[in-house]
Design a protein around this nucleic acid. Structure first.
Length: 343
DNA sequence: AAAGAGCACAACCGCAGACCA
DNA sequence: TTGGTCTGCGGTTGTGCTCTT
C-alpha cells in the first residue's frame, strides 16, 4: 500500500533543535504525554515533522537518559548483545535502560564496529539469523536453533556480566515490578519506592535528567531575558551552541549519569520561574488527571518493549543476580510454554 | 597558525508492522 | 478484508569538533 509522508515537506524545519523548540515540545508532552506525535506539530505550532518530534523526545529530551561515556561494562554488554542479537539496537537498548538505541547504535558505529564489526558482518549475530529464518524452518529445527541461541545468550551475558554487575541491573533486580516496564517507569517507580542509598542514586539519575532540561531551559530563559548582541537566540541556533547543549551531560558524567552542565553552573543556582519549573517536573505525569491516563500508559508501554526472548533473558539475569535458579533454568524452560510465542 | 582528516553524534530517511475504521 | 494512519526501527547522512600534520 502506498504510504503518505509523515508530514508535508513544505514548511517543515530540519536540522538541530533550538532550545525554544525543546521547551515547546517538553511542555506539550508534559501536559499531554508522549504519543500521538502526529498531533504534536499541529498543536504546538512546531514546524517539525512528527517523527522528528518523537525522535527528539526519545533520544534527547526524555527523562532518564544518560549520554556519553559508556562504561566498560556497558561496552562489553553491547558487544556481546550485538554479537547475539545483531544490529537490533532497540533490543540491545532494552538491556541498557539509560541508553537510547540511537546512542548505542552511534557508539557501536563509531567505537566498536572497527574492533568487533566482523562478528556481525559474518552473520554470526545469532538473533538476526534466528529471527529471519525461523519461518522457513520446521518447528523442530527452529526450536533447536532457539536452544542454541539461548545457550549463546547465556554464555554471552554471563561473560558480559562476569566483570561486575552493572548498577542498574542490581537496582532493577531489586524492583521486579519495574523490570519490564521501561526506564521511565522504572525511574519513577524507583524514585517513589526505593529507600536509602539506592533510592538516592536512582533519584539522582532521574533528577539529573530533569536538571538537564531544566538547565537547558534556564539557560535559554536567561538568554532570552538578556539577548546577546549576536542575537544568538534565533531559529538558527549556532551548531556550536547546539553541540554544547547536546553535550552538556557528556564529558565526565560518570558522577552525574545524565549529565550536569558544567558550562551552566551559574544557572544551577537560579531558581527556575514557576512555570518553567513545572515544565521539568515529570513527576507530574503520575498525578495527571484521568483523561491523560492513556497517554501516560502509552508512555510507559513504549519506553521499552523487550521481546519475549529478552524477557526470558532478563528474567534469567535478574534471577542470577539474586542468587536465583541460575542460567540453567533458562534452558530448562519449556519451549512450548515460553518460547514458541517468541516471534 | 592553518588546513585537512578523522571522529562523534544529532537528526533524517524510508521501510515494516501494528492498529483502527 | 481492505486501506489509511501512526509508530518503531535500523541505516544513513550532515555537520561541528578535535586531532594531526
Amino acid at each position: 500500500m502506498g504510504r503518505s509522508p509523515c508530514c508535508d515537506k513544505i514548511g517543515v524545519k530540519k536540522g538541530p533543535w533550538t532550545p525554544e523548540e525543546d521547551i515547546i515540545l517538553v511542555t506539550y508532552i508534559q501536559q499531554h504525554g508522549p504519543g500521538n506525535w502526529r498531533a504534536v506539530p499541529a498543536h504546538t505550532g512546531l514546524r517539525r515533522c512528527s517523527k522528528s518530534c518523537r525522535l527528539r523526545w526519545t533520544n534527547y529530551l526524555r527523562p532518564g537518559i544518560r549520554r556519553g561515556n559508556f562504561s566498560d561494562k556497558e561496552e562489553k554488554l553491547i558487544i556481546h548483545l550485538q554479537a547475539l542479537l545483531g544490529n537490533r539496537w532497540a533490543a540491545i537498548a532494552s538491556y541498557l535502560p539509560e541508553r537510547t538505541d540511537n546512542d548505542i547504535k552511534n557508539y557501536w558505529n563509531t567505537h566498536l564496529k572497527k574492533k568487533f564489526g566482523k562478528v556481525g558482518e559474518d552473520g554470526v549475530g545469532a538473533g538476526a539469523v534466528s529471527s529471519d529464518s525461523h519461518q522457513s524452518m520446521s518447528k523442530g529445527q527452529w526450536e533447536r536453533r532457539l536452544q542454541t541461541d539461548i545457550h549463546m545468550a547465556k554464555q554471552a551475558l554471563r561473560e558480559a556480566l562476569s566483570m561486575e554487575t552493572p548498577a542498574f541491573m542490581t537496582e532493577v533486580g531489586k524492583q521486579p515490578s519495574s523490570s519490564h516496564s521501561g526506564e521511565f517507569n522504572s525511574v519513577l517507580t524507583r524514585s517513589q519506592t526505593m529507600s536509602s542509598s539506592s533510592a538516592a542514586a536512582a533519584a539522582a539519575t532521574y533528577a539529573s535528567s530533569a536538571e538537564n532540561i531544566s538547565r537547558l531551559l534556564q539557560g535559554w530563559m536567561r538568554n532570552t531575558e538578556t539577548p546577546a548582541p549576536s542575537g544568538r537566540v534565533s531559529t538558527t541556533r549556532s551548531s556550536s551552541e547546539s553541540t554544547q547543549l547536546s553535550s552538556n551531560n557528556t564529558p565526565g558524567d560518570s558522577a552525574c549519569s545524565g549529565g550536569a552542565a558544567p558550562t551552566t553552573t551559574a544557572a544551577n543556582d537560579r531558581v527556575a520561574p514557576g512555570g518553567l519549573h513545572s515544565v521539568v517536573r515529570f513527576e507530574s505525569f503520575s498525578s495527571a488527571p484521568p483523561t491523560e491516563e492513556n497517554s501516560r500508559r502509552r508512555l510507559f508501554q513504549e519506553e521499552t518493549k523487550p521481546t519475549p526472548l529478552s524477557l526470558l533473558l532478563e528474567t534469567w539475569l535478574l534471577d542470577a543476580e539474586e542468587g536465583g535458579p541460575g542460567p540453567e533454568a533458562l534452558l530448562g524452560m519449556s519451549l512450548d510454554n515460553n518460547t514458541v510465542e517468541l516471534f
